[in-house]
Structures are given as structure tokens and as C-alpha cells.
């Protein structure tokens, strides 16, 4: 049962990732990434990371992807032209394969014997929201606070980046598209 779930989720994750890279229309790429993220959250569940699986679905597949969809529809993601692809772009699959070869050397050559096991015996409640919350508010309090600070900075920075700069735009543009983002 676990194996069946793993292989289904793995096929979903790899297929979603390939679709993100190969589909021409950015809108479909975003939808493929949603499929990929859902498959990954199944894998997280199989690894007993229950809180992270839920956070992946809610934060990533929910909130972040909605942001993507809004920007794609705002910018009007045009299809890319393939004709003028340069040499570096044609070598991209070769680069990927070489990188994969290097990774498999690193994984195969690692001395981690536990890689061939199912992992250590888990304490009760491993990866549950209670345990993650306790760790975040005791041992990892400082990273938690820094992360919240970073999110605030990013939100303010994005608003500053995407706002309308009235002094710098042409006159006929000011009456054009109203409102923010």
C-alpha cells in the first residue's frame, strides 16, 4: 500500500515537474506546479511530516499559486517562441542529465547506511502540529521570529516594487489602468 502510494505520488511529482518545464503556456505551467505540489504533499505524509503536508497544501498549492495565477492573468503570459533558442538553451537537457549523474554519484557514494532502511523508529506524534509548534516556540524560537520578520519585509518590498510610480510614467498612461495590481 505504501509502495503503491509512493509510486503514484512520485509519478505525479515528476510528471508535474516535467509539465512545468515543457508546457509553452505559463498558465498551464502554474497548474502543473499545483499538481506537483499536491503529489509532494502525499510524499510528505508518507514521511510522517503531517504538519508540513498540510502547510504545503494550504500555503503553497493554495495561497502562493493563487498569487501566480493572478500575475499570469495580469501580465497575460504569452507563449514563448522556440525558434530563436540559443546554444545554451539547447544544452539545458544535457546539463540536467549531467547534474543527475553527479547527484547519483553523490547518493551512491555516500556512507549513510541508513539510506537503505525505512528510517529510525519514530516517537509518538512525530511531525504532528503539536510537536512542530512546540519546537518552533521553544528550541527554534529565533528562526521563527526571523522568518516572520522576513515575511513582513517581503510583503512591504513587493508593494513598493509593484506600486504605480506616478512621477515616472507617461501622461497618457495615468488615466489608463486604475487601481493597484
Amino acid at each position: 500500500m505504501v509502495q503503491l502510494l509512493f509510486f503514484m505520488a512520485a509519478i505525479g511529482a515528476i510528471g508535474g515537474a516535467l509539465a512545468v518545464v515543457l508546457l509553452r503556456n505559463p498558465f498551464f505551467s502554474v497548474l502543473a506546479l499545483v499538481v506537483h505540489l499536491m503529489a509532494l504533499s502525499v510524499l510528505f505524509l508518507l514521511l510522517h511530516a503531517e504538519f508540513l503536508a498540510a502547510a504545503q497544501l494550504i500555503v503553497y498549492a493554495g495561497a502562493v499559486m493563487v498569487l501566480y495565477v493572478f500575475v499570469v492573468s495580469y501580465v497575460g503570459g504569452a507563449d514563448e517562441l522556440l525558434a530563436e533558442a540559443g546554444v545554451a538553451r539547447k544544452l539545458a537537457p544535457v546539463f540536467g542529465v549531467v547534474l543527475l549523474f553527479a547527484f547519483s554519484l553523490a547518493i551512491g557514494g555516500s556512507a549513510l547506511k541508513a539510506l537503505d532502511t525505512r528510517g529510525a523508529d519514530l516517537p509518538a506524534g512525530f511531525g504532528s502540529p503539536a510537536q512542530i509548534g512546540e519546537l518552533l516556540l521553544t528550541r527554534f524560537l529565533l528562526p521563527f521570529e526571523i522568518a516572520s520578520f522576513l515575511l513582513t519585509i517581503a510583503a512591504v518590498g513587493a508593494v513598493l516594487l509593484a506600486r504605480r510610480r506616478r512621477g515616472l510614467e507617461e501622461v497618457d498612461d495615468v488615466s489608463g489602468d486604475g487601481g493597484v495590481v
Binding site: L47, H48, A49, F51, L52, A55, Q56, V59, Y60, A63, V64, L67, Y68, L112, A114, L115, T117, G119, A120, D121, L122, P123, F126, G127, Q131, I132, L135, L136, R139, F140, P143, A147, L150, L151, I153, A154, A155, G157, A158, L161
Partner: peptide, 25 residues
């Protein structure tokens, strides 16, 4: 999961936060 230690999951959570910031900017 391999070590039976949830510290790595906290690390993954921080990576998700950084990814969200990167996307927003």
C-alpha cells in the same frame, strides 16, 4: 525521517517561508 528527528522538518518550514518571500518579490 531517517534520523527520527523533527529538526529537519523545521528547516523545511523555513525553506517554505523563504520560497514564499522569493515568490512575492
Amino acid at each position: 525521517r531517517m534520523h527520527g528527528n523533527a529538526d529537519g522538518q523545521i528547516f523545511a518550514l523555513v525553506v517554505m517561508v523563504v520560497a514564499a518571500c522569493e515568490v512575492v518579490v
